[in-house]
Amino acid sequence: MYLGHYILLATICLALSCSLQSCQQTNDELPYLGQTIPTEDGVKHHTVGQFKHVNQDSQWVDNQKMSQYIYVADFFFTSCPSICPKVTREMLKIHDALQLDTMVKLVSFTIDPKRDDIHRLKLYADNLGVNQKKWWFLTGDKDATLELANSFFVAALEDPDAPGGFDHSGKIVLVDREGHVRSFSEGTDPTTTPGLIKDIQKLSASYQSKN
């Protein structure tokens, strides 16, 4: 009778530890941010908008090109007198931490393409002293870029009363190869950057294990 109790207890413990372990494994995967819609085939996760921009080396960069990489994105402008230098500094930390991971790119979309032409973006990148094969500064149509920012969950709008003429948030957003938003940090809060770097490494490792 007592032996039966012990066996039952041991079985329950074993079942619990197994279920906790499987739970742990599920939680290891980064979440899909944004709205997930059920479909006939399964579910459809939120995807960032379509874009076709030009980088500081006059090369076209679009969604198809970015599908070869996982990337972090921010929205900025070079003459921004408010939060941009802080956000760029955090992007620089990410750039330095993931220097050797060729799967990871960084992209910075300018929301002020009128002033930020290719020449100015090139000068900006030169002055930052970054690896320009890893970090692309992109310019394109202003309205399309402002709309694109929304799909990255970044607020960006033209506002004559805002410093520099644009109001925008400083989120740094992690996007996977399928265009889904998987993580983000607040570029104005340096304490959130190490967490994002860990998430990028985790996402990169998940693709490498598939190959």
């Binding site: 007198p81 620089l92 002055n127 930052l128 002293g129």
Partner: peptide, 12 residues
């Protein structure tokens, strides 16, 4: 906002 809280600035 430009020179940062620690006064280190931003790169070059």
């Amino acid at each position: 906002s430009c020179h940062m809280e620690d006064g280190q600035g931003l790169s070059r």
